[in-house]
Design a protein around this nucleic acid. Structure first.
Length: 488
RNA sequence: CGGGGAGUGGCGCAGCCCGGUAGCGCAUUCGCUUUGGGAGCGAAGGGUCGCAGGUUCAAAUCCUGUCUCCCCGACCA
C-alpha cells in the first residue's frame, strides 16, 4: 500500500504528488483538471472551514448562498471583470440530451436563449442581488460570506494549487463609505493572516498587489504571500477593495442620511482549497504530510502492540482508557486496533497522513505504566508515564503547533534576501530562490521587464513601512523595497 | 494552446523496436506462523492492454484519430 516518498531534493513536484497520494488527500478525477478530494483531505478542509467560519462570525459576517449559474450578460457589465475572466469560463449552452443510436447527444432544440456561465467567482450575481437588498443607509453594511465551488477553465492544473473546479469561501460586503470598505478589506486580510499563521502555522507576508496583479475589477488587492520549501511563493489569500465599480455596473445605490442617493462601496475576499497545497508544501517532509494540531482531523493515534490474544486484550484495554481520557479532554483521538497490520506499518502510515502525535503501547508499557510518545514534526520518541498523559498530550499539541510555525518562519527567514542591484537580484534568484526584497520604481514596465528576464514577479508591496531608495533596474526613486519571488 | 514524456488487474511497472492468444512486484482472499519501524511461507481470485477506427489469417505490439495524466512554457486563487 504505502510506498516510499520521493526525496524532494530530487524532484519537488514528484515529492509533492507523493505526499498528497500517501496522505490520501486527493486524486485525479476522470474530468480534466478536476480532483476527487478523499475523506482525509475533506476532513482537513472542514477543519479549515470551521476555523475560518468562526473568525468570519466573530467579525460580524453571516453566510448566504448564491447560484452556481450566472447569466452571460451579467459578466459583461463590469469591463475589467469580464476581461479578467472571459478566457476561462465554462459555458452552459443546452439543457437536455437525447438518445441517438444507443448513445446520447445534445438536443439541439434545447439551446438556451441566454447561455449560463458556471461561476468563476460570484461578484456579478451577488451585486445583481444586492441591488434589491439595498435602499437605505440603514440596509448597510451587508457582511456576507459564501462557501461554494467555482470553476475556472485553467490551461494547466496542479492538485490543490490550481484545479479547474475548487472549493472556497468568498466574502462580499457592501458599505456606505469608502473608508468603511477599505477598513473591511484590511480587516479581512488580517483575518487571513491570523488564520494562516495561527491555524496553519504558515508564516505569511501581508501586502498589496501591483496594478498588473490586481483582481479584475478591483481598485486595490491585498494579499497574503507564503514561501514554500522549494523557494517558490504561493499567493494564499486575497482581499479586494472594489471601490464603486460593481455598484456602478449593477446600479446599486442607497439613500444616505443626507437624503442623497449614493453608490455603494464594495469589498470581496477569498481563500480556497489551495491553502491545502500551501500547508503541504510548508510543513511536509520525506515521511509525508505534517499537519498542525489545530487542523489535524486526528490529533493523536494510539497504536497497540501485542503478540497474542491475551496481550491484545490487555493492551487494548489499556489503550482504551487512554483513548477515553484524551477524548474527555476534547482531543481528536483514534485507537488503531486493526489486527491485519503490524505496528511498523501503522507507524509509517500515520506519519504519511500527518497525525501530530502517536502513542504506542505494548505489554512492556502496560506493565511499567508507561507509553511511548512520538512527535510527527520532529520524529522524536520518548517514554512517558501513563499518569498525566492527558495534560502532557494537550500541552504537547500546543507545543507542536507553535514549533511548526517557528520552524517554518525560520526557514522562510533563511530564504529571504535583500538586494540593491539588479545583478545581485538575478544571482540570488538563480542560485537560491526564495523571497527577495528590492527597490522598484513603481512602473508596470519595469515589473514586466523583470518578469520577462527572470520569471520573478512582484508578490506584493509589503504593508510594513520601508526605507526609500532607488529602483534596482532603472535607478528611479522608490518608496520602499517590494517583495519579489518566483511563484506558483 | 505550443514542446517533451506516459496511459497494460486496486497501485507501481515489463512486454511494443522485430504482430502469434498477457507477465512481474506490491495489494486483495484463504490457511499456518508472526506482531516494539512498512512480516514470512503456501494456495487462490482479479486485466477484451485509455477510447474509437484502420491494416492483417492474427494487434498490447503497426497506422490514423481522440481523451486523460505528468514535466517545461504562455494564463491563473
Amino acid at each position: 500500500m504505502a510506498q516510499k516518498i520521493t526525496k524532494r531534493e530530487q524532484d519537488y513536484s514528484q515529492w509533492y504528488l507523493d505526499v498528497v497520494k500517501e496522505a490520501k488527500l486527493a486524486e485525479h478525477s476522470p474530468v480534466r483538471g478536476c480532483m476527487v478530494i478523499r475523506p482525509n483531505g475533506m476532513g482537513l478542509w472542514e477543519n479549515m472551514q470551521k476555523g475560518l467560519d468562526q473568525m468570519f462570525k466573530d467579525t460580524g459576517h453571516e453566510n448566504a448562498y448564491f447560484p452556481l449559474f450566472i447569466p452571460k450578460s451579467f459578466l459583461s457589465k463590469e469591463a475589467q471583470h469580464v476581461e479578467g475572466f472571459a478566457k476561462e469560463c465554462a459555458v452552459v449552452t443546452h439543457s437536455r440530451l437525447m438518445s441517438v443510436d444507443g448513445g446520447v447527444e445534445v438536443d439541439p432544440d434545447s439551446k438556451l436563449d441566454e447561455e449560463l456561465i458556471v461561476r468563476p467567482t460570484s461578484e456579478t450575481i451577488i451585486w445583481d442581488t444586492y441591488r434589491g437588498w439595498i435602499q437605505s443607509y440603514r440596509d448597510l453594511p451587508i457582511l456576507v460570506n459564501q462557501w461554494a465551488n467555482v470553476v475556472r477553465w485553467e490551461m494547466r492544473t496542479r492538485l490543490f494549487l490550481r484545479t479547474m473546479e475548487f472549493l472556497w469561501q468568498e466574502g462580499h460586503t457592501a458599505h456606505a463609505t469608502k473608508d468603511e470598505a477599505i477598513e473591511e478589506t484590511e480587516k479581512m486580510l488580517e483575518v487571513y493572516r491570523t488564520f494562516a499563521e495561527e491555524f496553519m502555522a504558515m508564516p505569511v507576508i501581508t501586502g498589496r498587489k501591483t496594478e498588473s496583479e490586481r483582481f479584475a475589477g478591483a481598485e486595490d488587492t491585498y494579499c497574503i504571500e507564503a514561501l514554500m520549501q522549494d523557494g517558490k511563493a504561493l499567493q494564499a489569500g486575497t482581499s479586494h477593495f472594489l471601490g464603486q465599480n460593481f455598484a456602478k455596473a449593477f446600479d446599486v445605490k442607497f439613500q444616505d442620511k443626507d437624503g442623497e442617493h449614493k453608490l455603494v462601496w464594495a469589498t470581496s475576499w477569498g481563500v480556497s482549497t489551495r491553502l491545502i497545497g500551501g500547508l503541504i508544501m510548508t510543513h511536509s517532509d520525506d515521511q509525508g504530510l505534517v499537519i498542525p494540531p489545530k487542523l489535524a482531523p486526528t490529533q493523536v493515534v494510539i497504536v497497540p502492540i501485542y503478540r497474542d490474544d491475551e496481550q491484545r486484550a490487555m493492551v487494548i484495554e489499556y489503550g482504551d482508557s487512554i483513548f477515553e481520557e484524551l477524548k474527555g479532554l476534547g482531543i481528536r483521538v483514534k485507537l488503531d486496533d486493526r489486527d491485519n497490520y503490524k505496528p511498523g506499518f501503522k507507524f509509517a502510515e500515520h506519519e504519511a497522513t500527518g497525525i501530530p502525535l502517536r502513542i504506542a503501547i505494548g505489554p512492556r508499557d502496560v506493565e511499567n505504566g508507561n507509553v511511548e510518545l512520538a512527535r510527527r514534526d520532529t520524529l522524536s520518541k520518548s517514554i512517558e508515564t501513563r499518569d498525566g498523559i492527558g495534560t502532557l498530550v494537550k500541552t504537547l499539541l500546543d507545543t507542536i503547533q507553535v514549533d511548526l510555525f517557528e520552524t517554518a518562519k525560520k526557514r522562510r527567514e533563511e530564504m529571504t534576501y535583500e538586494v540593491d542591484t539588479y545583478e545581485e537580484f538575478k544571482t540570488v534568484l538563480e542560485e537560491k530562490g526564495g523571497f527577495i526584497y528590492a527597490h522598484w520604481d513603481g512602473t508596470s514596465e519595469t515589473e514586466e521587464l523583470v518578469k520577462e528576464e527572470t520569471k520573478a514577479t512582484i508578490r506584493c508591496i509589503p504593508l510594513t513601512e520601508g526605507e526609500p531608495g532607488k529602483c534596482m533596474v532603472t535607478g528611479k526613486p522608490s518608496n520602499q523595497k517590494v517583495l519579489f519571488a518566483k511563484a506558483y
